[in-house]
Design a protein around this nucleic acid. Structure first.
Length: 830
RNA sequence: GCCCGAGUGGCGGAAUUGGUAUACGCGCACGACUUAAAAUCGUGUCUCGUAAGGGAUGUGGGUUCGACUCCCACCUCGGGCACCA
């Protein structure tokens, strides 16, 4: 008997699959001519870090691979590609430390990743690989950026339109338009563009002379934020940056959620993140000042209970009131103090609320003309709503805390109708969102250059010839001001180019489209391919991207639909999130804890098939599980059992050719004996049904469990037929592609099992001809009786009540109820 | 604080339009094979009880003929948001 030598067979078939291009995806034309339907399976592409893959990473790819393999066997033209999201901070930090170009680090890491991928036996079509840092790729990232820059959101048609249409409209509406100079027009248009320049806060570290990402900041012993490198203080400063107007798409991003086959959990996260709320804008005139303070409230019904108005310290109105405020010095100090307070501290709810009254400014409640004081406090956020709040301590916990501290009276007034009162005081019903526009700039080198430049007058122009390539720099070290290393490249700055680069999520927001047509030089992908594939049918990846990549991609996709590039509204129809694989110590696997298990080691000792089966068997796909090298042996034993059975079949061909026939079912009895081989066939067909459904639902653990049950039965039997065993191998193939292929070929098959078709179960063969019905007396199981399926209740009742065991439990008592659940159970209530 | 999700043997877990709780696997124990070991196979393995039988799905209630599954309250863990007016 041949030994199951995983090293040998895995190497052999890997080579064969590569050379025969078994997993090659057809382009739309050849697929259509063969009448193959498309199915697009995608795993989130990795960031090629220097650490390589640990056993946690393959889990999501094994899941998507199994799905892709089954769909391929079912006859779909499956697109299942892989690539690399290779821009980003770690490569830049590596470059600083080792004084090499980030590209070198990336290339080296990609090689490691590819080697690891190949060993695990993924069915990627590598001819379609993309890499976000290739100029031919990021050319199109820049192209999309320019499209965003040249578009505005038209609320009427509820979609993005070219900025040229807006200019036409503005010049019609505003007679002065044609007299404005270019800079003024630019400023006005900036308020509409979907990619626009604005101001935002960044983490600035004076000592390091650089802007830091949140990941590069840690808290020191006193809870103050310091740089991870060196432990230097970090402060917030405001700088000009590019933004994407994702808020324009807020409604569509919410509306699209229900139709998505994503977990409710994830949809909920996105919905909360967008944070839509309806409320009223209400103006509070300032006493004798001819100035209004506009507040946003969701509780206009409490308007009569207002006791003061609060502004955020950053509210622009405060400076206008400078001369009218008697205690200006105190106010100024408070504003300064709030500015230096760290965001974290400011948002800490346990911290007591502070504020200063603007003396002697009074606001007038438009509902009843009552005068109320005006305060400033940092419990009001400048960038939500209007940055001003009407305080109703009676109905709002925060207002009550503040009132208690500063001895502001709390008054109880009856509630009124929200909508009526808003109308009555001349307010407006509006919708606000928690989500902010997305900062689309990083003060870094290793990212896509923003394809814009400024002339000497400050007018912004597009770069006409894409790609705008990232120039080489001498040093990746910080420049000492709040700009990236590109600011140190004289030729770059001289041309007026942006010194910020795009954030990490730029390239990942559309990469799934590039896979459809990865080598296209004229378009990001051809119309033909885009129309054929449409969107990702099955997406698999981490839930940690809920409010990042998964939201940004939806936003970009909707924009690309608006400008006619794609036809679908949503990029990812169905999504599954894999649970994290934790280390045996219960922590995340990380170099830092020294608890990392390398898949290469597992593949070497147990084989890739065992690793794959184990990772899918260890628990539900979407749940976190702890790695246990001890438990892998079970998966290995399962595959060895499969191997042994296959050897037996090959060894005795005469036995298996004598196919068993079903004996007739004897009538009149409730116990029907059947041959083992007929039972085995029934079990096989049940297993086909179960595995097919389980893969479709990503219930891989129960699919494997049902295959184990089948194999256990096969092992007991000496009547396993080649035909049946081959059907089982096809079920196993997506999970354990190497061993399935090897045994398949040993039966003389010429074509790979992975394109051999998918077994179908026979409805008649899974029908049970005897059904065990549990008999309960007062809810407790007291007997089990066999019946023919679908027996009538009357028949069952007669037999059950004449059963001795049942009789003894009823003890002659009166039967109050007789409940029969078809083909399952009987409950007798006495 | 608010919003989600989850608590089942020694361990990973199975079973939910309410219908035989603990499938499958790991571990453990015993047995077979072997000179022996490994591998493999078989048997057992929630708990109390000699048994008959009773009890058990985080805790306490409720609905029901029947609850891991539905409802209420609480506890614990995980995730998301976090002064969003």
């Amino acid at each position: 008997m041949k030994k199951y030598d995983h090293l040998k067979i895995e190497k052999k078939w890997q080579k064969e699959w590569d050379s025969k291009k078994v997993y090659k995806t057809l382009d739309s034309k050849s697929a259509k001519s063969k009448k193959l339907k498309p199915f697009y399976v995608l795993g989130m592409f990795p960031y090629p870090s220097g650490a390589g893959l640990h056993v946690g990473h393959p889990r999501s790819y094994i899941g998507s691979d199994i799905c892709a393999r089954m769909k391929r066997m079912q006859g779909f033209n499956v697109l299942y590609p892989m690539g690399y999201d290779a821009f980003g901070l770690p490569a830049e930090q590596y470059a600083i430390e080792h004084n090499v170009h980030p590209r070198e680090a990336v290339e080296k890491n990609i090689k490691t990743f590819r080697g690891q991928f190949d060993k695990i036996g993924f069915s990627f079509d590598w001819s379609r690989q993309v890499n976000t840092t290739d100029t031919e790729y990021y050319k199109w990232t820049q192209w999309i950026f320019l499209k965003l820059y040249n578009s505005y959101y038209d609320k009427k048609s509820n979609k993005a339109r070219p900025i040229s249409e807006l200019i036409k409209k503005l010049s019609k509406e505003d007679k002065e338009w044609k007299n404005y100079d270019e800079l003024k027009k630019q400023d006005i248009l900036m308020n509409y563009r979907l990619a626009y320049e604005g101001e935002s806060e960044v983490n600035w570290c004076q000592v390091l002379g650089t802007v830091l990402a949140n990941d590069e900041i840690v808290d020191d012993a006193h809870g103050h934020p310091v740089s991870e490198r060196g432990g230097y203080p970090v402060e917030k400063i405001r700088i000009k940056q590019w933004f994407l107007r994702i808020t324009s798409y807020a409604d569509r991003l919410i509306e699209g959620l229900p139709e998505l086959k994503w977990s409710n959990h994830l949809k909920e996260i996105q919905k909360n993140w967008i944070g839509k709320s309806e409320g009223s804008l209400i103006k509070f005139p300032l006493f004798k000042l001819n100035i209004d303070v506009e507040v946003f409230t969701t509780r206009a019904d409490t308007l009569f209970g207002v006791t003061y108005v609060v502004l955020a310290p950053e509210h622009p109105l405060i400076l206008n009131l400078k001369n009218k405020i008697e205690n200006w010095k105190e106010v100024e100090e408070y504003i300064e103090h709030a500015r230096h307070k760290e965001n974290q501290e400011r948002m800490d709810e346990t911290k007591e609320k502070t504020g200063v009254e603007l003396k002697v400014i009074k606001a007038i409640n438009p509902a009843n003309n009552e005068e109320v004081p005006v305060w400033i406090s940092d419990y009001v956020l400048a960038d939500y709503g209007t940055g001003a709040v009407m305080a109703v301590p009676m109905h709002d916990e925060r207002d009550r805390q503040f009132s208690n501290k500063y001895h502001i009276p709390i008054i109880d007034r009856p509630l009124v109708d929200k909508f009526e009162i808003t109308e009555k005081v001349g307010g407006k019903i509006v919708t606000k969102y928690k989500m902010r526009d997305a900062v689309f700039a990083r003060q870094r080198y290793w990212g896509e250059p923003i394809p814009l430049y400024r002339d000497k007058k400050g007018i912004i122009h597009e770069v006409k010839k894409l790609p705008l390539e990232l120039p080489n720099v001498k040093s990746y070290e910080p420049t000492g001001h709040a700009e990236g290393p590109l600011a140190g490249v004289k030729a770059w700055v001289a041309k007026g180019y942006e010194t910020n680069t795009m954030p990490g999520w730029a390239g990942s927001s559309w990469y799934f489209l590039r896979y459809m047509d990865p080598k296209n030089k004229k378009e990001l992908a051809s119309k033909k391919e885009l129309d054929y594939w449409k969107q990702v049918d099955m997406y698999v990846g981490g839930a940690e991207h809920a409010t990042g990549h998964l939201l940004y991609s939806r936003f970009w996709h909707k924009f690309l639909k608006d400008i006619g590039v794609v036809k679908t509204e949503e990029p990812f129809v169905e999504l599954h999130n894999q649970g994290l694989i934790m280390a045996t110590d219960g922590r995340k696997m990380s170099k830092r804890w020294g608890n990392v298990v390398n898949p290469d080691d597992i593949v070497k000792v147990y084989g890739a098939d065992t690793l794959r089966v184990y990772e899918m068997f260890m628990g539900p796909f979407d749940q976190p599980v702890a790695w246990s090298t001890e438990s892998i042996i079970g998966s290995r034993r399962f595959l060895e059992k499969v191997w042994r059975i296959s050897q037996d079949i090959v060894a005795s061909p005469s036995e298996i050719s004598s196919r068993f026939t079903l004996p007739g079912i004897p009538g009149g009895t409730h116990t029907i004996q059947k041959s083992h081989s007929a039972l085995l066939e029934k079990l096989l067909h049940k297993t086909i049904k179960k595995v097919t459904e389980d893969i479709a639902n990503f219930n891989f653990n129960t699919a494997i469990s049902s295959m184990m049950i089948l194999v256990n039965e096969m092992e007991k039997s000496d009547q396993v037929t080649v035909a049946d065993f081959k059907m089982f191998l096809q079920l196993l193939a997506p999970f354990a592609p190497y061993i399935a292929e090897d045994i398949w070929k040993s039966f003389g098959e010429k074509k790979s099992i992975h394109i051999s078709g998918w077994p179908k179960y026979d409805k008649n063969k899974i029908k049970d001809d005897v059904i065990k019905i549990a008999v309960q007396v007062n809810g407790k199981v007291r007997a089990e009786i066999e019946f023919a399926p679908d027996s009538s209740e009357a028949d069952i009742k007669e037999i059950v009540l004449s059963n001795e065991a049942v009789k003894s439990w009823i003890k002659g008592g009166e039967i109050k109820r007789f409940i029969y659940i078809k083909n399952k159970l009987v409950n007798i209530v006495v």
